[in-house]
Design a protein around this nucleic acid. Sequence first.
DNA 1: GACCCGCATTGATTTAAATCAACCAACCCT
DNA 2: AGGGTTGGTTGATTTAAATCAATGCGGGTC
Lengths: 248, 248
Amino acid sequence: MLKEKASIIPHECGDCPIRHRAVCARCESDELEVLDQIKYYRSYESGQTLIWSGDPMDFVGSVVSGIATLTQTMEDGRTQMVGLLLPSDFVGRPGRNSAAYDVVAVTDMVMCCFRKKPFEEMMARTPHIAQRLLEMTLDELDAAREWMLVLGRKTAREKIASLMAIIARRDATLNMNGTRGPLVFDLPLTREAMADYLGLTLETVSRQVSALKKDGVIELEGKRRVTVPDFNRLLEEAGDDSDGGMLI
Amino acid sequence: MLKEKASIIPHECGDCPIRHRAVCARCESDELEVLDQIKYYRSYESGQTLIWSGDPMDFVGSVVSGIATLTQTMEDGRTQMVGLLLPSDFVGRPGRNSAAYDVVAVTDMVMCCFRKKPFEEMMARTPHIAQRLLEMTLDELDAAREWMLVLGRKTAREKIASLMAIIARRDATLNMNGTRGPLVFDLPLTREAMADYLGLTLETVSRQVSALKKDGVIELEGKRRVTVPDFNRLLEEAGDDSDGGMLI
DNA sequence: GACCCGCATTGATTTAAATCAACCAACCCT
DNA sequence: AGGGTTGGTTGATTTAAATCAATGCGGGTC
């Protein structure tokens, strides 16, 4: 559990790994220089809660590396994940002062942060940032609506298959894996986190993962490493149009 | 079913009923004049499908009056509503060419439309529009995430109570009804549409509406007119923090 | 008035997933 | 090497909601 912090952290926007996908993607080099001035990095450990729902939020930022979840919790403890934050995803809402959801790191992670006030001022002066943020927000809205179909209408088996398909697809785009051949990826989530994502119990998740494995839809190496021999088969199991709308 | 069309349709942005809430809310009068030039009105009848998922979208627009639903459908017919469009809500996504969801009118309605291309050009030149659209999209994203909790973790009874609470709240803000006293509103949706919203069957919806009525949480006049004697009681039934975060 | 028709309700039965309950296997400590 | 902890699996039973099936009701129309 030893941390070596600042060493691995990039300091120049120029060689930032999320440069072309994050909220700054559209910025010109002069705009980037300004951002460079006001940004700072923070790192978090796996399991750490970055932000508590209801707390005042004095910064916004981008996930540079690692994964976090956005969750809502009811008084009696029932929890629902409402977002999965991967590298380049944006955290926080300009124009709002308190956090609406818990943000929890599921792996060690690094964030590129901006104090909210200067960022908002910069946003007002820099249409490129607002444009990109709008685009990202619209994408997130689409993802949320896709997820509403999963939560509202799919069976447990279809839910698991849908989650696998989503993670496989994200992994493929992130790592620029070519399209053909069996897909291999690591599940970033525990069974419990998967259950919170899908509106299931962890027992049901475990059973359905086993069932998909028994039926040859997926292969498992350990608990986390998944191989998908036939992506279209997985999409069928997910109840999706299996037109194979692969990548982007 | 007789229609008298253009007569009731406003023609000047100045006296538009959604002027202060729609995508044009932040526009100055000179910007409004430009919009005035490129806008046009369309009206639709109850039950009509405005837009089919997958179809090319050559316009965007705002709901002026009436209500529409955004729905997703699986091949086998299971459907999930993913949005409820009320007056001032925006339809369509700049930067995308084909529709992602079906849009269906549930009442007669009037839309204020813009051809997509000119609107996109205008948006690039007019930060006020992009700013407002970002704000509206962030609000929709919050609503979608709220809904994910409802779909994923709430019981049938809580789902119905949540829906009633949402409609009551929206109705109150729209009609500027003062806060205290019993709330009265009309359900804009059939039992089947409510079921599609909530990820339930229409039978379960009917049973739970009856149960809430029997328990005095709501009162019914006919099938559609609802009275809520105690809003906090309703929020408790919805499983929400009953801090009574009323209005806005 | 008699007949539909679309919506809604209510009842009986089935079923998918939750719940309750053991048990397993890595991994980590000192 | 032993004991604890965390995450995962598997089995037995219960339960909430789906499904299957009548029946009710208000508003049109012929």
